[in-house]
């Protein structure tokens, strides 16, 4: 199969593929930034005492987790124009990715904060640290450390998820690969080029996650 791979055509479409890659990266980075923002706010709302905001966030997280991204995407794509919001597909894509990953980010951060033992806070209180000092020196450093690897994992998921935006005609990596398929009837070449680019991103992020956990793994609690 590799013998019949038409590398000439792949090279010919290199500019399109690179443009697609660029779009995928842009979608992923802005989607992830949005997801972090949503996730942090959502998480903050779940650990504060007021009931209603908490209930809303829990409902949001559960709804996102129990429905496919593609259905969420179509909901926005076919739904937003209905209520008079006319924005380009590219932006709808970013919103969908951010809303979707935001729910998972919220869960990741929440479990990081919950993993802190009560004794840690109590130790901070008993040595006279203020609330902000406790947050800064005790709670956040311990809460954020275990979230880094899962967050990178979520970033990997998001990059892969962004391929679904090709289905609402956003031109990104997957769509760029399909052009080779459609214009030259060479699906294999297009898909191999696309898959290779995704794999490069995947291995890079995976490497970062491993690097992080190698240098930051806390000794196991007995």
């Amino acid at each position: 199969m590799l013998g019949t791979l038409n590398t000439r055509v792949m090279l010919e479409y290199l500019p399109e593929l690179l443009q697609g890659l660029q779009a995928t990266l842009l979608l992923s980075v802005s989607g992830f930034a949005g997801a972090m923002l949503i996730g942090i706010i959502a998480c903050a709302l779940t650990i504060q005492p007021l009931r209603w905001p908490r209930a809303i966030v829990i409902a949001y997280v559960d709804i996102i987790r129990a429905t496919p991204l593609l259905a969420q995407l179509y909901f926005l794509y076919f739904g937003l124009p209905r209520i008079g919001i006319l924005i380009p597909e590219f932006h709808i894509g970013i919103i969908a990715l951010a809303l979707n990953s935001g729910a998972y980010v919220a869960e990741i951060i929440r479990s990081g904060i919950l993993s802190i033992q009560r004794g840690q806070v109590e130790a901070g209180i008993s040595t006279g640290l203020s609330y902000l000092q406790r947050m800064r020196h005790i709670v956040l450093p311990q809460a954020l450390r275990p979230t880094v690897s899962p967050l990178i994992g979520q970033a990997i998921v998001l990059v892969k998820d962004s391929s679904l935006l090709s289905l609402i005609s956003v031109v990104e990596l997957t769509r760029a690969g399909q052009r080779i398929a459609n214009e030259r009837f060479m699906p294999f070449e297009g898909l191999v080029a696309t898959a290779t680019a995704y794999l490069a991103i995947y291995f890079l992020l995976k490497f970062l996650a491993e690097l992080w956990s190698r240098h930051n793994s806390l000794p196991d609690r007995a």
């Binding site: 892969k160 998820d161 391929s163 690969g177 699906p187 294999f188 995704y198 991103i201 995976k206």
Partner: peptide, 22 residues
């Protein structure tokens, strides 16, 4: 395993659907 964990499912699906017929 890494190859399939590292690529979007949509791409894998297209692989199966468009390439196996050849």
């Amino acid at each position: 395993i890494d190859i399939f964990r590292g690529t979007p499912f949509l791409v894998q699906l297209f692989m199966v659907f468009f390439i196996l017929p050849s």
